[in-house]
Amino acid sequence: MGPEATVTFVGNATTLLRLGAFTLLTDPAFGAAGSRVYLGWGAWTRRLRGPALPYPEMPRPDVMLLSHLHGDHFDRVARKAVPADLPIVTTPQARRRLRRRFPAARGLPTWDAQEWSRDGQTLRITALPGRHGPGPVDRLLPDVMGSLVEWAVDGQPMLRLYVTGDTLYRPFLGEIRDRCGDIDAMLIHLGGTRLLGLLLTMDGRQGADLTGLIRPRLTLPIHVDDYRVMKSPLSDYLTECRNRSIPGVRPLTRGETVTLAPITTG
Rank of each mutant, 00 (worst) to 15 (best):
R49K: 15
R97S: 15
G40C: 12
T122G: 07
L86K: 12
P56K: 05
L148D: 04
R139N: 15
Y169R: 13
L141P: 01
D72V: 10
T122R: 11
I246D: 11
V149A: 12
R179S: 13
V249Y: 01
V7L: 14
A29C: 15
Q156F: 07
W116N: 07
L123F: 00
A5V: 07
D203H: 04
S67N: 09
P247Q: 04
R217W: 08
Q156D: 05
R79D: 01
G212C: 14
Y169N: 12
L148E: 06
T253E: 10
A21Y: 03
L24C: 11
F74C: 13
A81D: 07
T219E: 10
A104V: 06
W41N: 13
V224M: 04
A127F: 00
A32E: 14
L148N: 08
T122A: 12
R101E: 06
H223M: 11
T264P: 00
R49G: 08
D27S: 10
R97G: 13
V149C: 12
A113L: 13
V258R: 08
R160A: 07
R170L: 13
V153H: 05
D225F: 06
S245W: 08
V163G: 00
Q206Y: 01
L17Y: 01
M1W: 10
A33W: 05
Q156H: 12
R47H: 08
P129Y: 04
D27I: 02
D236M: 11
P28T: 03
R217V: 06
P51R: 11
I125W: 06
G212P: 04
P59V: 05
L48Q: 12
V82H: 02
G130M: 06
P28R: 01
D184C: 09
T14I: 10
A21H: 06
A81P: 02
V10G: 00
L196D: 02
G42F: 08
R228D: 15
R131F: 00
P129W: 03
R60W: 06
S117H: 04
D178L: 11
L234D: 10
L199N: 11
G135T: 10
G266Y: 13
H189W: 01
R244G: 05
R76G: 06
V144T: 09
V37S: 02
M202I: 02
T8D: 06
A43V: 12
R254C: 15
P247E: 07
G146S: 14
T14C: 14
R60E: 08
I176K: 01
L210P: 01
D62A: 09
Y38I: 01
F172A: 13
P83E: 12
L210E: 08
A52C: 05
L200G: 02
R177A: 04
D236E: 14
R250Q: 09
G50M: 05
T193C: 07
G146I: 03
P28D: 03
G192H: 05
T6F: 04
T26Y: 13
P56A: 06
I188W: 11
P134F: 05
G2W: 14
P157F: 12
P103Y: 10
P59F: 00
R95Q: 14
G197I: 02
M230K: 03
A152T: 10
R124S: 09
T90P: 07
V63P: 04
A33G: 04
G120P: 07
